[in-house]
């Protein structure tokens, strides 16, 4: 499958569009359908398409497999950090209005919602890619 030029060309063309659509789903999640989880899974699906088209080891080398766990920790830290920042500002957990009234910037809660969604998306993307790359066949040692 790896030497098929049609699969490689089509996936090379369509992977950036899938990733832009995933980012749109994450950012647009506060006002419409979608959100962090769906956008993160769609972003992971683009990497799965790259795994299928270009082989597992090359994409892993480019992606930096040991960084995937770091990405998932960064995402969940963004989520929990904003949640505890709301606690520190005197509200409930993830009560964005507390930060907005404490800092005094108008419409800050919209940006905080987007930041939390991006944290969820980063974590979901990293965990999905690491699960798939662990389950999929290696090139040499296929059973």
């Amino acid at each position: 499958m790896r030497e098929n030029v049609v699969i490689r060309t089509i996936s090379r063309i369509s992977v950036p569009f899938i990733q832009v659509f995933a980012l749109y789903v994450i950012v647009h999640g506060a006002v419409g359908a979608g959100g962090g989880f769906q956008g993160g899974v769609a972003f992971a699906a683009s990497f799965i398409l790259m795994f299928i088209a270009f082989g597992l080891s090359g994409v892993e080398k480019r992606l930096g497999k040991k960084w995937l766990m770091v990405y998932s920790i960064i995402g969940i830290a963004i989520y929990a950090g904003i949640g505890f920042l709301c606690l520190a500002a005197g509200g409930n957990y993830l009560e964005y209005g507390a930060i907005e009234s404490a800092v005094g910037v108008a419409h800050l809660h919209g940006y905080l919602i987007d930041a939390v969604e991006m944290g969820i998306g980063i974590t979901v993307m990293a965990v999905m890619v690491s699960i798939i790359s662990d389950v999929m066949d290696r090139d040499g040692e296929s059973p």
Binding site: V25, A33, G34, G35, F37, Q38, V41, A42, A44, A45, I48, I52, M128, I131, I132, V135, M136, D137
Partner: peptide, 20 residues
């Protein structure tokens, strides 16, 4: 929203997991 999740997870990731 549920339709989006079903399309992305059910038809995308789960199928790849099963095939792998």
């Amino acid at each position: 929203d549920v339709a989006f999740t079903e399309a992305v997870v059910g038809a995308g990731v789960t199928t790849v997991l099963f095939i792998a």
